[in-house]
Nucleic acid binder design. Structure first.
Lengths: 105, 105
DNA sequence: GCGTCCGATAACGCACGCGTTATCATCTAA
DNA sequence: TTAGATGATAACGCGTGCGTTATCGGACGC
């Protein structure tokens, strides 16, 4: 087997998403949490902050930051607001057709 | 006292908001809930729906609709999503500087 | 080795939005 | 006046995100 034959993680996910209805439902419903995760991780790592430091800045706790960055939980609006208060981050959300989408920039 | 000397509700609120720091904090932090309330009430009344009918459409309950329309609670993203699923409503949110703002249209 | 910091994670409780049910005063129509 | 529908609200429980504390393995420097 050639290395180029290996499937990417995204390909594997997409394949299962198409085959498994239950998986698709769960995956899609947590899309927003994963998008938030990416933003938080990027912000923190670009500034060389630890989770504990970001927690102190935002008034959150280190385990809460970890859960957000792992996309484990759907954050509350209040939590997103805390993130933006001390960081300069901002989140633009479109709630439409039963879903929550994060609008880039 | 002339009728024109009567202060509007908005004027009374603004005056207290400037004088009372605690009141201002609570009032501003619930601004988003009140904005959502206006949208829900308008949507429902324009179509001549009862709270129970809107509840059935959205999968929520009549008391939940009432609480939303009275601005008593800060709705969850999941709840806003339910509202948009069956109604065609949409919510555009800006989470910035520690607050949640509802973007018109 | 040893101490330190890291992120991940478990356990427990709390806060709060919503489900569920029931009730209330008010209004309108028959 | 009576019957039905409306919105408001109380009571109780549940789900879940976060606070809080503690702990874990792993990486790094001394």
């Amino acid at each position: 087997m050639k290395l180029s034959d290996l499937k990417t993680v995204d390909q594997l996910i997409e394949e299962r998403r198409e085959k498994d209805a239950e998986f698709r439902e769960i995956w899609d419903s947590t899309a927003f949490a994963r998008q938030v995760a990416i933003i938080v991780v990027r912000y923190r790592t670009e500034r060389g902050l630890s989770q504990r430091e970001l927690a102190r800045l935002t008034g959150l706790q280190q385990p809460a930051i970890a859960r957000l960055e792992n996309g484990e939980t759907e954050p509350r609006l209040q939590t997103l607001a805390k993130l933006t208060a001390a960081t300069g981050l901002s989140f633009h959300l479109d709630v439409v057709r039963g879903g929550v989408e994060l609008v880039p920039a």
